[in-house]
Amino acid sequence: MNIAVCIKRVPLSPGRWTLTADGTAIDTSGSAMGWTLSPHEECAVEAAVQLAEGGGTVTAISLGTPESAEQIRDVMAVGVDRGLLLETDGAEWDPQATAGAILDAIRNDDTAFDMVILGTESADTGDYQVGVRIAHALGWPIVTNVKGLSVSDGVARCERVAGSEREVYEVALPAVISVKDGLNIPRYPSVPGRIKARKKPIDTSTPAHPGQRLEKKSLALPPQEVGTAEVIGSGPDAAPKVVEILKEIGVLT
């Protein structure tokens, strides 16, 4: 089974975001700033690698700056075979443009894919649509919000959580599946995995930006009631004070 998995490089912040002076982007210049994938996509990668273990290949596709190669190498270290880097100059691509570029990459690739696996929503922009747009363009079915996935005899059985129940869907391959964090526990890269990743191929192309139909104007941070906690103790001696607070707010009667 040949699987394409779509991943997006996003900033990882330990604490609070700060914005650039012009208010149009997240300030990623800080020394503490790292980069990562969305947790949904880590689960997408894990699912793809597991499914291909029975025979097949996994191709990671990422649209982003040249540095996105770092995230492609990361997923190669856990079993992805090759990468397609769709390079941008750092300008934002709206979800429609993103889906279009990924779609072209899928169509132009020599591999005949049986599945495309993505996150249900990007960690940063949260657009909830790239997978659905790709599915329509390919004429393939899509199940979104997937938290349980198994494939047998060319049929993907998908589960999603709704309240206290799990809804079951079944679709014939080829299909697009967009997943949620919690689908599985992504493995950590091993040292040999990291070494192998360095030798795996990344094909780079530079798609043309068709223009933004969902166009960002500015960003802002929501007003936060940030205070400082009242320190009520250090160590076990704080317990009586905790009991007082629990009584005061009515959770202990």
Binding site: T228, A229, E230, I232, G233, S234, P236, A238, V243, L252
Partner: peptide, 29 residues
Amino acid sequence: TIMSYADYAIVGDVSTVLPAIVDAVRAAK
């Protein structure tokens, strides 16, 4: 960072603080 969101803070090791809270709550109940 959690300290700037919390109303109350106990600066200490959770493995000793929490059992003490459990005991105190059980006694209070």
